[in-house]
C-alpha cells in the first residue's frame, strides 16, 4: 500500500481517516507497553528536528521508533546546529530528509511543516508549528477519549484557554466528526474564536458556552482542561482571579459522573489540584502514554507498514 505521505494537519480529516489511525494504535498498544517485541521498522531512520523545546512529543516519538525496532537521529539543540550559522529551514529540510526515512518537525512559525513538505519526498510529520497545528496531539487526544470513554455522541467540556490553545482548536474540528456535544468553559477573555464556533455550528454540532464549570460538571463524560498562561493577562491580579475560577479540585468533581474522565495536554501548573490525581477521573498521565501507540501508528502509516500491522506481522 502507498504510504500516507505527510501528517501536517487533521483539520480536513474525515471520521474514516481518524478511525484508521486509532485502530492501528490499538493494535500497536502491546508493543508500546513493551509487552510484545517488534522489528517492524528495523532499518528505518527517523529524524527529529525540534526548533523549540519539547518533552512529551519528542520523547514519545523516540520511544515509538525504538519500540518498533527503528533508529533515531536528532538535530539536538538549535544553537549547536547549522541553524545557528543562519541556514534556512528549507535547506535544513533538503539536507536532513536525505539522512532519514521520515522527519518529525517542530518549529515556532506557522506553516513550517507544510512548507517543509514541499521541499522533500520524505514524509514530514508536524510536531507543532507555532500557533498552527499539532496533529499528533489531536490524534492522541482522540485515542485517549476512545480508550477511556467513548468517541461517538460524547458530551465533553473544553476548559481553560480556548482562545489561544491550538490543541483545543484542532480537537474541536476532530470531535465534530463524531457528533460530540461540546461545552466551552472559559473566562470571557479566553473564549473560543467565533470563526471556530461558526464552523462547529455549520457542522451541526451542539455547542454550549459558559464561564462556570459547575454548569456542566454533572453531565459531561470528559473534561479537557488546558493551562491558562500568565502572559495573556497584563494584570497579575486578574490572572489570579481567572485561573482560580477555572481550577479543578476534588471538591468540584464530587458531583461528576463516576466514569467522567479528566484530560490535560500537560504540562499543568495549578489548574488541576494534585489531589485529583488519585481519583479515577484523572486520565492525563494515561493520555501522555497514549502518545506512544498513536505515534507508532503514524510512523507505520507514513512508512507504508500499516498492512503488516493489520495482518499481525509485528
Amino acid at each position: 500500500m502507498r504510504p500516507m505521505h505527510h501528517i501536517i494537519s487533521t483539520r480536513e480529516y474525515t471520521k474514516e481517516m481518524f478511525d484508521e489511525i486509532l485502530e492501528l494504535a490499538e493494535l500497536l498498544e502491546p508493543i508500546a507497553k513493551g509487552e510484545v517485541k517488534s522489528k517492524l521498522l528495523d532499518g528505518k531512520v527517523l529524524a527529529l528536528l525540534f526548533f523549540e523545546p519539547s518533552t512529551r512529543t519528542r520523547m514519545s516519538f523516540e520511544t515509538a521508533m525504538i519500540r518498533l525496532g527503528g533508529q533515531i537521529i536528532n538535530m539536538g539543540a538549535v544553537e549547536a546546529s547549522s541553524i545557528a550559522k543562519g541556514e534556512s529551514l528549507s535547506d535544513t529540510i533538503r539536507v536532513v530528509s536525505q539522512y532519514a526515512d521520515a522527519v518529525v518537525l517542530r518549529h515556532p512559525r506557522e506553516g513550517a511543516a507544510l512548507m517543509a513538505s514541499e521541499y522533500t519526498s520524505a514524509p514530514i510529520i508536524n510536531g507543532g508549528d507555532g500557533a498552527g497545528h499539532h496533529p499528533t496531539q489531536t490524534l492522541l487526544d482522540l485515542y485517549t477519549i476512545k480508550r477511556e470513554s467513548r468517541l461517538d455522541h460524547l458530551n465533553i467540556a473544553l476548559a481553560g484557554d480556548l482562545k489561544y490553545g491550538r490543541t483545543i482548536h484542532s480537537l474541536c474540528y476532530a470531535l465534530s466528526r463524531y457528533h460530540s456535544k461540546i461545552n466551552l468553559v472559559s473566562p470571557p477573555e479566553l473564549h473560543l474564536p467565533d470563526r471556530i464556533v461558526d464552523d462547529l455550528l455549520k457542522r451541526d454540532i451542539e455547542v454550549n458556552i459558559t464561564t462556570n464549570m459547575e454548569d456542566v460538571i454533572e453531565d459531561i463524560d470528559v473534561l479537557y482542561m488546558t493551562r491558562i498562561q500568565k502572559e495573556r493577562f497584563p494584570d497579575p491580579a486578574e490572572f489570579n482571579r481567572v485561573s482560580n475560577s477555572m481550577r479543578i479540585t476534588k471538591e468540584l468533581i464530587q458531583t461528576a459522573k463516576p466514569e467522567m474522565k479528566i484530560m490535560h495536554p500537560l504540562p499543568r501548573v495549578n489548574e488541576i489540584s494534585f489531589d485529583v490525581d488519585e481519583t479515577s477521573h484523572a486520565a492525563y498521565f494515561k493520555q501522555a502514554f497514549y502518545g506512544v501507540p498513536v505515534r507508532m501508528a503514524i510512523l507505520c502509516k507514513v512508512l507504508g507498514m500499516e498492512d503488516q500491522v493489520r495482518e499481525g506481522k509485528l
Binding site: S88, L89, P108, E110, G111
Partner: peptide, 12 residues
C-alpha cells in the same frame, strides 16, 4: 499579514 507565518521568513 501574520508576521509569524513561515512565508515571511523563508525564501518561499
Amino acid at each position: 499579514i501574520n508576521p509569524n507565518c513561515i512565508t515571511n521568513s523563508e525564501p518561499i
